[in-house]
Design a protein around this nucleic acid. Structure first.
Length: 213
DNA sequence: GCCCAGGGGGCTC
DNA sequence: GAGCCCCATGGG
């Protein structure tokens, strides 16, 4: 089947099976960005604990986080794991936000998407997946997020080899789907949901996968 | 006890 | 540019 039709078919199957995912679970774009850094290689359960702690101490705000010292920040986000590294990364993003956009996310998202992506990739601790998560889920701009589940699922379905690059996987989706933020949002979230249920690293469980036939 | 989670940086060759 | 290692808590 033609790639465009197959990708839409997969989306429809997943949407029927799992329903709307309502990503990103957050009260504000800033919370999305902090969550995107905190969730790097980390179960979302642990991220929620860290975000809850930030809220408890009224730190989930650009000005507050910009002022707090890195050690205190690290201790506050401890539950998310890699807390020293992540405190450094969050600080690096805030330095970027305040030196380029006066700490104003609305200003940041006025930047043309591709330029913003390049800028974010130059921030310590922000790689391709985190940059794209920020652009799509905090900025509501049409870019497709690739993660480990997406690579595993799409390679098992035969689209690309699993070791293919991030940009190759991203190109697969962006060359074959309408550039609609809502579609990109749901599609990635649905792939993660499928991955959590049926596409574990060591336990494929492929026979019960809704996409197998 | 073991495996792994909604990655990224640094280093080596 | 590919292949390692490090970061670290918490749930199954």
């Amino acid at each position: 089947m033609e790639t465009k039709k197959r990708l839409l078919e997969i989306y429809n199957i997943l949407y029927s099976r799992f329903g709307p995912q309502n990503w990103w679970p957050a009260d504000s774009p800033f919370e999305v960005i902090i969550g995107a850094i905190l969730t790097q290689s980390t179960n979302w359960n642990n991220v929620e604990k860290a975000i809850g702690n930030l809220k408890k101490y009224n730190l989930l705000d650009p000005n507050a986080l910009y002022k707090v010292d890195e050690t205190t920040l690290a201790e506050t986000i401890r539950a998310s794991g890699y807390y020293n590294m992540k405190a450094k990364k969050i600080k690096a993003f805030l330095d970027f936000l305040f030196s380029n956009y006066y700490g104003d996310l609305n200003e940041m998202f006025k930047t043309p998407m591709n330029l913003l992506r390049t800028q974010l990739l130059n921030v310590y601790g922000i790689g391709e997946e985190t940059a794209d998560s920020i652009i799509l889920y905090a900025g509501n701009l049409p870019i497709f997020v690739i993660d480990a589940y997406t690579k595993r699922i799409m390679s098992r379905l035969g689209f690309l080899e699993e070791k293919s690059s991030y940009s190759q996987f991203q190109k697969l989706f962006m060359d074959n789907l309408p550039h609609n933020p809502k579609l990109f949002n749901e599609y990635h979230a649905l792939l993660v949901s499928l991955g959590k249920h049926f596409c574990k690293k060591s336990n494929p469980n492929c026979a019960e996968c809704p996409l197998s036939r």
